[in-house]
Design a protein around this nucleic acid. Structure first.
Lengths: 234, 234
DNA sequence: TGACGTTATTCACAGGCTGTCACTAATTCG
DNA sequence: CGAATTAGTGACAGCCTGTGAATAACGTCA
């Protein structure tokens, strides 16, 4: 055993302080919102940050992120995924070396939050964040969009029954771009992901929409995967 | 404020020991190989593990993973990516709480390695690994395959000029499945990713193959992204 | 030297998937 | 009732993919 290690590597012997940062998204007023924390004192009130918490020795990363989410919002997120881990550039604080684990979470529309947090549209958030957190938000958003067609994320943002227009709107929020109605529905039905109920909902104006339910097909064998997609390289 | 929290956070005050695990892949004898470390003593010689190293206070995660790779192999990997971070289930050791950051790396074919490591085919590796590391390997492999058509990974495993058959073989290794020759080439050329040289190489039998060079198109605007892919959900 | 085996490269065709436009349906509002 | 609005479908052209087959260029071996 190296006896001197404790002195020369004081910080290393103490180990790393691990922080969990959370990018918590939600459909908000026709746009995608991210939950940001306002500074405590008056002077830093205008400085927003991603909610974060220090990981304690006894908890799991996932647990910590979940606790953090429940702490800043009223409900537990319906999607929670790890995005990545970064070493802090230089820890000016006396806490020693630091590691930050970034998580992304999703809450259904209309979720409430606790002070001092607030929903900020993702298009406006970067301007309000310090550079490092801006990168984190970008990364989380990219990770979110990359997973949209790997996991039934959109369905977890909706109630048990929903209209196809609502579903499409969720997809458009998550992806940040418009989708074509006919194509969207054609692909959706081809995948047999939803099942029609016999209920209809009238939103006020326009024709009432049929309600659907998320009903993924049994774990049958998937069609053989397609070839390589070179046009997404780079 | 919970006053008791400070005492229960004693371990947290000491901080986390952070380990970096590395799944280092390479094309190996017509198959995909992963570099595993053999146990030190005779009794554990048959137990294989993923190479790992403890993160020191002054280095970056990326640096640590690179150092680890250079330590177990002779050359630096041409691809290196973070896969994820996990809390150890229970640290029986006295080191206190532990965090493991998993990286994946890729080395070109023919790369050498240092004792006590060896290449093991990915199809055989799971049987030789402890359960936790088996999961890590699975995760790394999934991450690798997910990135194959987002980044020019395959091209970084080949020399500057290569034949299309070699390129296709690399893709087949990475993806773990056969690809159809005509489709592969059609898509490759459609993406304008390669450029023909005027050299040809004869492998002994059969018609000589033309050599190509990786030549990604200038950062021109991509075609608008396509619609949602529902068939990959679940 | 010529038939044969092997690997490379391309073509052609059928079928599937996508982007779009147009059209019909069902309600609310004036 | 007519206009405005939202939902839901059909049809068509074009692109992309899977597949098989044809053609090329080489080494080997009788």
């Amino acid at each position: 055993m190296p006896p001197d290690r404790s002195s020369s590597k004081r910080a290393g012997a103490r180990g790393f302080v691990v922080g969990v940062d959370l990018a918590l998204f939600t459909p908000n007023d026709g746009d995608l919102g991210v939950l940001l924390r306002a500074g405590a004192d008056d002077r830093s009130r205008s400085r927003l940050t991603l909610p974060s918490e220090t990981l304690s020795a006894s908890e799991t990363l996932e647990q910590c992120a979940l606790n953090l989410a429940r702490d800043v919002a009223a409900a537990a997120p319906t999607v929670m995924e790890q995005v990545g881990t970064f070493t802090a550039p230089r820890s000016a604080s006396s806490d020693g070396p630091r590691l930050t684990v970034l998580y992304l979470g999703l809450l259904p529309a209309g979720s409430t939050f606790r002070s001092p947090h607030s929903w900020v549209e993702v298009s406006e958030a970067p301007a309000a964040l310090p550079p490092r957190q801006r990168e984190e938000l970008d990364t989380a958003l990219s990770a979110l969009r990359a997973r949209v067609d790997q996991q039934p994320i959109a369905f977890r943002l909706l109630p048990a029954t929903f209209t196809l227009s609502e579903l499409q709107r969720i997809y458009e929020l998550l992806l940040g771009r418009k989708l074509h109605k006919a194509s969207f529905r054609r692909a959706l039905h081809a995948a047999s992901l939803v099942e029609a109920t016999d209920e209809w909902r009238s939103e006020g104006r326009g024709r009432p929409a049929q309600l659907f339910r998320y009903a993924p097909p049994p774990p049958r064998r998937r069609r053989a995967r397609r070839g390589v997609r070179f046009d997404t390289i780079g």
